[in-house]
Amino acid sequence: MQTILGAGGAVGRALAKELTEFTGEIRLVSRSPEKVNPSDQLVSADLLNLSDTRKSVAGASVAYLTAGLRYDLDVWQESWPKIMQNVITACNEHDCKLVFFDNIYMYDENYLDGMDEETPVNPPSKKGEIRARIARMLMEAVDAGELTALIARSADFYGPNIKDTSMLTETVINPLREGKKANWLGSADVKHSFTYVPDAAKATALLGNTEDAYNQIWHLPTAGDPPTGKEWIEAIANELGVKPKYRTAPKFVVRLIGLFDSVMSEIVEMYYQYDRDYVFNSTKFEKRFDFAPTPYVEGIRETVKAERN
């Protein structure tokens, strides 16, 4: 039995499909879980509740924490440490290995061009501080011998059928498809990596089922030499058969919009990720598993194709 904690998101759903290569028993856990595979076991649970978390992990050999929270600093500060502690406690009690699907918010803003597993942890944002804290909680439990676990980190992600959880879909694909201008946060002249969700899911399943992958950090496979914002927009427009019209949002504009839009107000402190080259390196994973990430041109084609259907 392998269980996905927070199975309702884009990564959780894709991961459920990939895990069928390794196990016939998959448990999907969320507040309102829905089957991905016919044989999936569904458990309704709140990971903020330790009893629910124990129930979700019981009998599983591997748990994948892919949960996402509302993009709100107060929610993150209140909920993420509780969720991580509950998951660590439950996995320890049930002798269950843990795979944590993480992002890169904890990395030093001066080292985003070529991020790898050794990039300095020095979060420049409050959300980054929370991500650093929960990653540290996990690795301290590993170091103390209380847990067998690994961290799988992804860049911003994109892919077919992930809709409102993908910045690229929301700000570029959907507007262009509707005959509007794309919206690019920050400079359109800097490079920006995106991890292709099908690759991330396949890699996460592989890591979870590889004994010597545990007790370390992995960057999930992501194509190298990413396009600039302008090149992303041009490639997507080309697939859609429309003109690559776009506008950029400088930081002062994001801050102004944030006065009226709660999501944009939360993005202000993360603006540093969009005003410089953001290049994600997954060489460690690629070499260990002989894995070639999906090229951007192919990922864009498949993502746009899914949006048309």
Score class of each variant (00 low, 15 high):
Met264Ala: 03
Ile217Trp: 11
Tyr158Lys: 08
Leu176Asn: 14
Gly186Tyr: 09
Val62Ile: 15
Arg247Cys: 06
Val142Pro: 01
Lys245His: 13
Gly258Asp: 13
Glu34Met: 14
Ser30Lys: 04
Arg177His: 08
Ser154Arg: 04
Glu307Lys: 11
Cys96Val: 14
Thr204Leu: 15
Val197Pro: 03
Gly114Tyr: 07
Ile300Glu: 00
Gln2Trp: 04
Val99Glu: 07
Leu47Thr: 08
Ala182Tyr: 05
Glu140Ser: 12
Ile173Cys: 12
His192Ser: 08
Ile134Glu: 02
Asp275Ser: 15
Ala182Pro: 15
Gly186Ala: 09
Phe289Pro: 11
Met1Trp: 10
Glu118Asn: 15
Leu47Ser: 10
Leu42Ile: 06
Ala205Arg: 02
Ile300Arg: 04
Ala141Val: 13
Phe101Asn: 13
Thr204Lys: 00
Asp95Lys: 15
Gly224Phe: 13
Leu138Tyr: 01
Cys91Lys: 09
Leu206Glu: 13
Val297Ser: 09
Gln77Ile: 10
Gly299Ile: 04
Tyr107Ser: 03
Met84Glu: 02
Glu178Leu: 14
Tyr274Asp: 05
Ser265Ile: 05
Thr228Met: 06
Lys17Arg: 14
Asn86Ser: 03
Ala235Ser: 15
Arg177Leu: 14
Ala152Gln: 06
Leu112Arg: 04
Thr303Ile: 09
Met270Asn: 09
Gln77Val: 03
Ala201Cys: 07
Leu206Cys: 10
Gly9Pro: 13
Val62Glu: 00
Val29Tyr: 05
Tyr196Glu: 02
Val57Gln: 08
Leu220Phe: 08
Asn174Ala: 08
Ser39Val: 08
Ala188Asp: 11
Ala7Tyr: 06
Val279Pro: 01
Ala200His: 06
Asp212Arg: 11
Phe291Arg: 06
Lys284Asn: 02
Asn37Ser: 07
Ile173Gln: 00
Pro227Asn: 01
Thr119Leu: 01
Gly299Trp: 05
Ser39Leu: 06
Gln216Arg: 14
Pro250Gly: 13
Leu220Lys: 12
Ser44Tyr: 07
Phe22Val: 14
Leu150Tyr: 10
Glu18Leu: 01
Leu147Thr: 04
Glu140Gly: 09
Gly24Ile: 00
His192Phe: 11
Asp164Ser: 15
Ile134Asp: 04
Ala152His: 02
Pro38Lys: 01
Thr283Ala: 14
Cys91Asn: 14
Lys55Glu: 07
Thr53Ile: 11
Gly12Cys: 13
Met264Asn: 07
Ala7Cys: 15
Val197Glu: 03
His192Arg: 13
Gly299Lys: 06
Asn110Ile: 05
Asn215Gly: 12
Leu42Thr: 14
Asp46Gly: 12
Val242Ser: 06
Lys180Thr: 05
Asn92His: 15
Glu266His: 09
Lys284Cys: 05
Tyr271Trp: 05
Glu239Asp: 10
Val172Gln: 00
Glu18Val: 10
Asn110Val: 03
Arg70His: 11
Ile236Asp: 01
Lys243Trp: 09
Phe260Asp: 03
Leu256Ile: 07
Ile173Tyr: 11
Arg308Pro: 00
Val29Glu: 00
Tyr278Arg: 04
Gly186His: 08
Phe291Trp: 14
Asn209Glu: 12
Thr119Ala: 03
Ser125Tyr: 01
Ser79Asn: 15
Pro227Lys: 01
Tyr64Ala: 00
Lys305Leu: 15
Ala235Glu: 13
Thr89Gly: 00
Ala155Glu: 11
Lys284Ala: 03
Val297Gly: 03
Val197Gly: 03
Thr303Ser: 12
Leu42Tyr: 13
Val29Pro: 11
Leu206Phe: 06
Gly114Val: 00
Lys181Ala: 14
Leu65Pro: 12
Val254Ile: 12
Ala203Trp: 09
Pro221His: 03
